[in-house]
C-alpha cells in the first residue's frame, strides 16, 4: 500500500516536470558564428533519379518548436514580408498559404529562398538576417499552409485576423479533409 502511494506521488511530480521541456527557448545560438550552407536547389530536376536530400540539423530543431514558430511570426511582421506576400495570401509575391511551392516546400528550401533570394523579385537576406532567424521565418512560412504541428504553431494573432491562427489553418494539400 505504502509503495503504491509513493509511486502515485512520484507520478504526480513526474508528469508536470516532464512538461517543463516543451518550451525550451534557445535565444543564444551555439555556435553563434557561421550560417548554414546547404545547397540551393534552383530546380527539382536532377540527373540520375531521386536521391536522399541533404538536411540541416536545425531543420528538425526549428520546425516544431513553439518558441521558434512564434518568433518567426513576429519577424514575418517586423521584416515586412507582408509587403509582398500579404499575410500569406499573396500579392506582388506568391501566396504562402496554398499548396503550391515554386522552389520546394521543405523548411530547407524555404530557408534557402529567404537566404539567397529567388529570380523575379525575392530579395536575398543573407547577411541581413542572422541565420537562426531565417530558420524561424522558414518554420513559420511552412506553418502558414498548415504544415506545422498544432501543438506548436502560433495560436493567436496580435492584430486583426487576416486568417485563422496558424494552429487552426487546414493543411493546404488536403484542405483539412482526409485523403
Amino acid at each position: 500500500m505504502k509503495t503504491r502511494v509513493l509511486l502515485l506521488m512520484l507520478l504526480c511530480v513526474a508528469i508536470p516536470v516532464a512538461g517543463c521541456e516543451r518550451e525550451e527557448r534557445n535565444t543564444r545560438p551555439d555556435p553563434a558564428l557561421g550560417s548554414s550552407e546547404q545547397g540551393v536547389p534552383v530546380t527539382t530536376l536532377a540527373p540520375g533519379g531521386e536521391r536522399p536530400s541533404l538536411s540541416d540539423t536545425k531543420a528538425a530543431e526549428f520546425e516544431n518548436n513553439a518558441y521558434h514558430l512564434s518568433e518567426g511570426k513576429r519577424l514575418f511582421d517586423w521584416f515586412n514580408c507582408s509587403g509582398c506576400h500579404a499575410n500569406g495570401g499573396g500579392g506582388m509575391g506568391p501566396a504562402l498559404m496554398d499548396d503550391k511551392w515554386i522552389y520546394g516546400g521543405s523548411i530547407e528550401s524555404i530557408h534557402a529562398t529567404i537566404r539567397d533570394g529567388r529570380p523575379n523579385g525575392m530579395p536575398s537576406f543573407r547577411d541581413r538576417i542572422p541565420d537562426d532567424q531565417i530558420w524561424e521565418l522558414a518554420a513559420f512560412v511552412r506553418a502558414l499552409s498548415g504544415n506545422a504541428s498544432k501543438a506548436a504553431a502560433p495560436s493567436r494573432n496580435d492584430d486583426m485576423m487576416a486568417h485563422p491562427s496558424e494552429n487552426r489553418l487546414p493543411n493546404a494539400t488536403t484542405l483539412g479533409k482526409s485523403p
Binding site: R25, T27, A32, L33, R74, D127, P130, Q133
Partner: peptide, 11 residues
C-alpha cells in the same frame, strides 16, 4: 536574455 536583439555573426 530573451530580448529581441539577436546574436549576430560579426568578427
Amino acid at each position: 536574455p530573451g530580448s529581441k536583439m539577436p546574436v549576430m555573426d560579426l568578427d
